[in-house]
Design a protein around this nucleic acid. Structure first.
Lengths: 153, 153
DNA sequence: ATCAGATGTTTCGATATCGAAATAAGATTC
DNA sequence: GAATCTTATTTCGATATCGAAACATCTGAT
């Protein structure tokens, strides 16, 4: 498409889906050697940056169904990379934290991941990054708001 | 984050993943009543806009494994929404086309989909859309190139 | 104090996805 | 013409996901 052609909303959605698919494929390939899938990796990444979180907090953050989160934490526990703990006050709650082993692994992986991302996006100026960031934020908020208040269980 | 803070590559990836997840959730919800999943919908959308395509062309376009494409076309054939045909020259090739019934359905769905997308993105100016479009194109190309030439089978 | 509604997580069964291998067919090299 | 390599699609078995329901627990109203 040319400089003069308008970018339709439909076209933007297609390009968003394609960019995400390509990025997800790249991330998956780069962590495959560690035996982690994309979801497991993103769980560990969230725990690395935000500290221990409840199952529901992680689900919401990653837009996964609660049943999927149960499975993902099962996998991470089985690999002794994360562990569930009880909440001091609310007995329904399970809080998830990285183990020492998990922290060590995700720190190493994340370092390479971050470097790879920097490399991937070196062609975008700071102005371009900000524009994409803001636009995606708007799109994400709008989509979330338009999706019938009912998130995945 | 503030106006002054830089947008890191890592941050941009997270926001991209989140925006995609929200958009995908919205699309899935809006087509659920028609008994279609996201992949099936996107296959039909591709066939609507590009005419009959080979299994491999659709797979590459939607970034799905060829086995997934086999299943998706099986589902669409079972619902008599699409059909495989043989290629005149290359007997390995199966070309997929919408049926009359499928075309009628996807035209109706797509009309609503397009209107919904316009609504979702009405807060983005044309300049903003172009910036997001260009940025996502760059990111998608870079990720594709960086993923070891080996696409999903 | 009791009850109804909401919340958090797990379980269950179903579905969509994938990698690898198998099969058929086309292209290229010798 | 034969052999080898590549391509297109399907099959197989495994995995990750999901919606709905079940269960336990908490909150708020009465």
């Amino acid at each position: 498409m040319t400089e003069q052609t308008n970018v339709t909303a439909a076209r933007l959605w297609i390009v968003l889906a394609k960019a995400y698919g390509s990025m997800a494929g790249w991330v998956e390939e780069s962590i495959a050697a560690e035996g982690l899938g994309l979801s497991d990796f993103m769980v560990m990444e969230a725990l690395l940056h935000k500290g221990p979180l409840t199952m529901t907090e992680i689900s919401r953050k990653l837009l996964l169904a609660n049943a999927s989160m149960t499975s993902a934490i099962d996998r991470l526990e089985r690999k002794t990379l994360a562990a569930r703990t009880f909440d001091g006050e609310d007995r329904r709650i399970r809080r998830v934290a990285l183990t020492a082993r998990g922290r060590k692994l995700i720190e190493a992986i994340y370092k390479r991941h971050e470097q790879g991302l920097n490399d991937l996006m070196k062609d975008l100026s700071e102005t371009e990054r900000k524009a994409v960031y803001r636009g995606l934020k708007k799109i994400g908020f709008a989509a979330k708001a338009a999706t019938g208040g009912k998130e995945k269980q």
